[in-house]
């Protein structure tokens, strides 16, 4: 049973990353109509940012948790202003191709300087060690990642579904022209939205650094799994993205315990099953 709980925890952690990343993809797609293929590369940049902060400037985990998402978010906003904005009005597939190119560039540059091996990033002192919960031993850092990710996901949900800013965002997703004709600077909102989505990816990267190490290709395979999560959950609903992300992480964790050979593929297999049973995805909005 200990091993089962341990795998469940691993599943919840992966689920946290799936949720944070697919949430960002959904928000970005809503406003920009772009499937952000660079999302994995920006997640990796978040982790590297934390690594640089620590090893170059001596800035630790807690400030990095704030600085890295903002720094990478600003980088994302520059990308949007200089490259992505030229895609307005073109087929959605061009956005995917352009961001794929951006991902290749970013990952290639990092691979050049850091190879493919992992760089260690230590767990902050405050979160070292573990707790005995009676039925399992819980490493504090892992528990922190799950709880904190959940809080961030719910805060993002609240921001989008329950605030005035979120109402602008939802309205602009539906009809950007009209929202702009009400006096709202929609291009600026688009830039900020991309920054927000990218910031969430970078935050996931920082959270992941002490667990998975910091590697140039850490986001490359992850983004493909997240795409499968997005196909399953759809990009129409914020809560849908969060729930699908966590649920698939848990299912993956269970698979690791019961049938480890399939743990790499279970999300993809589930995607196939969902497409066969309900082609529009679980939240039911068509492309």
């Amino acid at each position: 049973m200990q091993a089962l709980y341990a795998q469940l925890l691993v599943g919840l952690i992966n689920g946290s990353f799936y949720a944070l990343l697919s949430l960002g993809l959904a928000v970005i797609f809503g406003m920009l109509n772009i499937v952000n293929f660079a999302h994995g590369a920006l997640y990796m940049m978040g982790a590297f940012c934390a690594y640089f902060l620590l090893n170059i400037a001596g800035i630790g985990y807690w400030p990095a948790l704030v600085i890295a998402p903002i720094a990478v978010g600003i980088f994302g906003m520059l990308l949007e202003r200089t490259l992505l904005k030229w895609l307005a009005g073109l087929d959605h597939l061009y956005g995917m191709l352009l961001t794929f190119g951006i991902a290749l560039i970013v990952q290639g540059v990092f691979q050049n300087y850091f190879g493919s091996s992992g760089l260690p990033y230590a767990i902050p002192d405050e979160l070292k060690g573990g707790m005995n919960l009676g039925f399992m031993f819980l490493p504090v850092y892992r528990g922190w990642v799950v709880v904190f990710s959940l809080v961030v996901c719910l805060a993002t949900w609240f921001l989008i579904e329950r605030t005035r800013l979120g109402a602008y965002l939802r309205a602009a997703t539906e009809n950007p022209t009209l929202v702009r004709a009400f006096g709202i600077n929609v291009p600026r909102m688009i830039t900020l939205t991309y920054g927000l989505g990218v910031g969430l990816a970078a935050l996931a990267g920082v959270l992941s650094a002490p667990i998975n190490q910091v590697r140039p290709l850490m986001g490359a395979d992850l983004i493909i799994v997240v795409f499968a999560v997005v196909v399953i959950g759809g990009m129409g609903s914020i809560m849908g993205s969060i729930i699908t992300g966590f649920a698939l992480g848990v299912i993956e964790g269970l698979t690791k315990y019961f049938y480890p050979e399939a743990s790499n593929t279970v999300v993809f297999v589930l995607m196939v099953l969902v497409l066969l049973v309900k082609p529009t995805g679980l939240t039911g909005r068509a492309a």
Binding site: F29, V35, H92, L93, M96, I224, V225, F227, A228, V230, V231, F268, M271, L275, L276, P279, T280, G281, A286, A287
Partner: peptide
């Protein structure tokens, strides 16, 4: 079963 960007994501997956 899906078009556009979803088709691309599905084939990739």
């Amino acid at each position: 079963r899906r078009q556009g960007i979803y088709f691309a994501m599905i084939t990739l997956a």
